[in-house]
Amino acid sequence: MHPVHSPALFPRWYSVGAALVAVMLWSSAPLLAEFAKATPPLQLTAVTLLAGSLATLPLSRRVNVAASGVGWQLSVWVGIPLLIFGAVSTYFIGMRLAPAAEAALITYTWPVLFVLLSQWSRFGRLRIAGVVGALIAFSGAALLLVPQAISGGLGGATTGYALALLAACCWAIYSWLSQAAPVALTPLLPRLLLIACAIAVAASLILEGTLALPSGEALLAGIALGLGPYGVAMVAWDKALRWGHASLVGSLAYGVPILAALLLVLAGMSVLDWRLPAAAVLVVVGCLKAGR
Rank of each mutant, 00 (worst) to 15 (best):
L83S: 01
A218P: 05
A36H: 07
V21E: 08
A103Q: 09
S118H: 09
L220C: 03
G79F: 00
P147Q: 01
L266M: 06
T48M: 14
W110T: 00
L248F: 11
A240N: 09
R242K: 15
L117Q: 10
V201H: 03
A233N: 01
E217G: 02
L42N: 10
S28Q: 08
H2W: 12
R292P: 02
T39H: 08
G17E: 12
A279L: 02
G250L: 11
A104C: 02
V283P: 01
I195R: 08
P58K: 12
A202Y: 11
A36D: 06
A33G: 15
P182A: 10
L31T: 09
F114D: 01
M234K: 02
A134F: 15
L20E: 05
D238F: 13
L211M: 11
L266S: 05
A172F: 05
L193I: 09
A167N: 09
L288T: 01
G71I: 00
L225F: 11
L194M: 13
W243A: 02
A19G: 15
I128H: 13
S151K: 11
I199N: 07
V88N: 12
A180F: 07
G69I: 03
L145S: 03
R122W: 08
E208C: 08
S118V: 03
W77Y: 14
A22N: 11
G140A: 00
S15T: 00
T109H: 15
A221T: 01
Q43S: 09
L145E: 03
L262H: 07
G209R: 13
F92H: 11
I84K: 07
I173C: 05
I173N: 04
P81T: 00
A180Y: 10
L49I: 01
A100H: 04
G86Y: 13
R62A: 11
A167W: 04
A55Q: 08
A290F: 00
A22F: 15
Y230H: 14
A33S: 15
I223P: 04
S251K: 12
L42D: 12
W72T: 04
A51K: 10
A101N: 07
L264M: 08
L25N: 01
V265K: 10
W13V: 15
L177K: 11
A164H: 05
S270E: 12
W274G: 06
F85A: 08
L59T: 13
L145F: 01
A198E: 06
G209D: 04
A212V: 00
L263C: 05
A224Q: 02
L20W: 15
M269Q: 14
L272Q: 13
T39N: 06
L272W: 14
